[in-house]
Design a protein around this nucleic acid. Sequence first.
RNA 1: GCCUGGGUAGCUCAGUCGGUAGAGCAACGCAUUCGUAAUGCGUAGGUCAGGAGUUCGAUUCUCCUCCCAGGCUCCA
Length: 670
Amino acid sequence: MAGVVTVRLPDGSTRELAEGTTALHLAESIGPRLAKAAVAATVDGAEVDLSAEVPDGSTVSVVTAESDAGRNVIRHSTAHVLAQAVLRLWPGAYFAIGPVIEDGFYYDFELPGGAHFSDDDLGRIEATMREIMKEDQPFVRHEHSIQDGLTLFEDQPFKREIIEAVGVGANEIDAAPGDESAPEVSTYWNSPVFADLCRGPHVPSTGRLGFFTLMRVAGAYWRGDEKRQQLQRIYGTAWESEKALAAYLHRLKEAERRDHRKLGAELDLFSFPEEIGSGLPVFHPKGGTVRRLMEEYSRTQHVAAGYEFVNTPHISKAELFETSGHLSWFVDGIFPPMELDGGQQYYLKPMNCPFHILIFKSRQRSYRELPIRMFEFGSVYRYEKSGVVHGLTRVRGMTQDDAHIFCTREQMPSELFTTLTFVLSLLRDFGLEDFFLELSTRPEGKAVGTQEEWDEATDALRSTAEKMDLDLVLDEGGGAFYGPKISVQARDAIGRTHQMSTIQLDFQLPQRFDMEYVGTDNGRHRPIMIHRALFGSVERFFAILLEHYAGALPTWLSPEQVRVLPLSDAHQAYADAVEDRLRSLGIRVSLDGADEPLGARIRRAKMTKVPYILVVGDDDVAGGSVGVNRRGSKQPERGVLMESFVDGLTTEIAERGSPEGAGAVPGGGS
RNA sequence: GCCUGGGUAGCUCAGUCGGUAGAGCAACGCAUUCGUAAUGCGUAGGUCAGGAGUUCGAUUCUCCUCCCAGGCUCCA
């Protein structure tokens, strides 16, 4: 029955092929270049190997190396080779899972005798992987019943566990995309002695791989569970070409260049003195200035938006956090208590909300007062496990730009709307432009509040979010047990996303603190409570801005806006006058005298990323002008009239611009 | 907290197969007075993260602690 099969291609055309034709043959029949680029195929949407036969009537497309799907195939296959190499070098090792992740892959192992990988092992493993690739071993797929699979991987406990999970129809372990419902497992053999459990597809043979590098070793818990054993994980990256690999490594370098910890030291903004402790930063004068500017701008905007400012202490009696519930569900994040006054326990505050609630409760409230919007730059302390502190983004002491809004149920939708609008506009003022929203809904099982309350609040959040004309991602069941939330995610200059602000409804605290107000009906009602942090923490926001701008902050946020350089001592007096004039306008300006060559002074100023360097010499003294060297520009401008420079500068500051141009992100793109 | 790798001058790093250390930049001093990314010479600067152990002797070897990086877990 040697017949003919007809398949449909993605462009809608159809092709007739001899029965038994593989996806690779199909690619070859379309063109040699396609065949060369092919790494896998999809048949009716499901990914298959190139060696798979294409069935009659199916829609087939070829997956090429230079697509996301193709890269994933390459990465998955490279991970597979990694496992083979490790088993070759450490006979008796157990191998667990080796999924594709963003830009790469990893594989988890348990080495015999409790051995661990060291960084030096990476080179050996990589060399062995290259040997395997050189051997050009084919990846051959086999299907097995659950029982056969268990027998085959008799001495591989992790594989057995995965197979058993497949057996009960709960296969979510292997991160390869695709749906798996058949009670069957598949393996890939690329040598008589090595097989891996894998859904596939894989590249046809190991010779198709090679543009990879192993990045690092790390510990990882089996199935991500802290209570289970820790495995040894190797991370790697793999690409379709040498060029793509190099581009990726370059991107990593770029991110490193922007690292706020590095910039913080280089620009003398902040540091982490060991004497103070892990995760406890100090801000130097320049960093302190930037912080002050951020906070001042934020305060001004909050006043305009109808917030009232409150202040609360950093410690309180234990009972407050018992009432709030923090001591039962957030203990791990709270520093241990101190005992004062004959046994009374005090805690450093991990959150500001209970304090704000007490302000609300300081007297009886009427509906006429609502909404009440309380704002505070509140310093909180959280005990973070030693392994998680990270620069300014994860610290143990931080200042939140924290606000709590207390309103009636009727006011909730409009409050949410104005809050979200406010949040977005403030973030835009700081130069972040690219946002999307995430809506986190009720977690099943353990949630306080009635279903009705949740529905009403979630609907209010959703309709608010939908009015924003931004992408909205649903985080089903991702809300906290005490209420749903919207979080604002921002993409930075090099495309990374950061969770910025959150707007969170709270059904728990008003109840626990028995909050109430008197309504029009003279009855007592419970207010709605909205938690809202905009920067998240000032420290973290600072870090994000620094990385977003690669240290070249917009002029209004620059700790030093202008530096004046007299060409020689003869121009000192004029330079002083220029400096005084700018300072009188509130410009942050400094002067670097002529006891070093101009080039050296220019260089030093450039390295601190001052927006404007003014060089003044004879011509300028004579003509009342300045030589303007603008950050980001190669060509200095000579003979700019002082007043014209001042006009341009003050306008730029008022508009929160940068010397590089409106909304410019220096070094962005790359 | 766990895994891997680190901590040498303010910074970036070299070095010591166990005999208490060196460069560049920065700082300071003197000279230099210059038109757009490094002027020259000189000086000073170190409990080699901290503690304990082994040793005649430890920055080096062992153990513990602290801190940092990358992960896991967690999260603003």
